[in-house]
Design a protein around this nucleic acid. Sequence first.
RNA 1: GGGCCAGUAGCUCAGCUGGAUAGAGCACCUCCCUUCUAAGGAGGCGGUCAAAGGUUCGAAUCCUUUCUGGCUCACCA
Length: 440
Amino acid sequence: MIKTQIINDRGIHICKSMVAWQKFGNGETPQSSGMKGDHLIGKYYVAFDKAYKKEIEELVAGGMDKAEAEKSTKILAEAQEMLQKWEAEDKEVRELWKRMNGWVYDGFSSTYELMGIDFDALYYESDTYLVGKQVVLEGLEKGIFYQKEDGSVWCDLSEMKMDDKLLLRADGTSVYMTQDIGTALLRYKDYPNLSGLIYTVGNEQNHHFKVLFAILKKLGYAWADGCYHLSYGMVDLPSGKMKSREGTVVDADDLMQELIDKAKEATLERGHLDGMSEEEKQQLYKTIGLGGLKYFILKVDPKKRMLFNPAESIELTGNTAPFIQYTYARTQSILRSSENIDFKDVPTQIDIEPVEKEIIQLIGEFPTVIKEAGDNYSPALLANYAYELAKSYNSFYQSVSIFKEENEDKKRFRIALTYLTGEVLKNALKLLGIDVPERM
RNA sequence: GGGCCAGUAGCUCAGCUGGAUAGAGCACCUCCCUUCUAAGGAGGCGGUCAAAGGUUCGAAUCCUUUCUGGCUCACCA
């Protein structure tokens, strides 16, 4: 498994932030403002949209019709001009672009670090679009694509019952699709032995990927069949859809901090912190808070749209990561108090309770669940499995005593069961990118 | 208009390759810390599985139609 990310570092959206920053920024930097770089750029992206809308309003007030006004704003013209300069590799524009992109990357990397996310390779659209262009031109030469009179290059997809797709504009510049062709190709060049390529991208792009895969196939790449779009549903807020342009988004950094704080509060109230250093405590809050967040997202079928209420959605009880983490901590608490188990000594001929049987069955299903989760590209299956197991174990924990059991065989069996449950819970959560605390 | 996806309890979701009384969590109501971590457990309340037809011994699950919501069909990315 090679984890990659495509970085959207090129295009009109970047230019919009750049223009707004030049106009309203007064030289503000992440250092001078104390803001995270990506937040700073986001701020100017919103500022651009505001100024743009205001200008439209003024034009409409002056008697212009709305559609006309949207095309006539000065500020948008400035952004477009900047994009042209960028494409022409204007030195000044490229400098500013590099500088501002640098801020964004710094911001991203601190977020990724906290979240425990890392990538093996990064691809930048500013690089891959050139590769894509090259491939398209070669395809044109081979007669796979065709050219219209105005010089634009297209792919005929009528045999797949889709509309023809533009790949190069009349002026020779590339579009989104062109870049994605280049990106796919680069990835297979860098990693020739890939058995497949999974694109984890929102379902609004379903059509885009259908077209992309069709084009790759037409180009004759055998690996095109291994491409899969893992299409996930959008997250809605109670107030509606998130829009970065309008600034109506839940910021990941704020959200993570909020959950870590919540975890801290709950832990101070009812946790078992005796003997923990301050550093260990901080780590515990993170484990619980971030685990809760990840689980909350991963437990629902990726295909589905989900409603996210930042104020109420994330709980620490019920079907949550903290519940599972708590169960794990319980198993470890028991194991700390018992001597090591040699599994050869675990008795197999004893009467067991129905709950114990249930746990054994669930543990036995773990490999199947992993496979199914993989086959279906659905972490939710693992999440729900871990929850089921934790629930069964808690039921067992409550109804059956381990250390007070007088039958030595039964006692050893229960400790072994506890050990296995803990291992399975830990590994299931690990597969979801969620850590587990030894105590909480 | 064409295509894709979704609609299950007040809310958020499982279950959907057909199988027995449709499951969780949250919320609400009872109980349970002299037991190994109560972030827990036991129980109660709550559902004509959007609607209507059809296939089947059997349908939340498969088929058809309708309704509702979302996405998409860009020389935006």
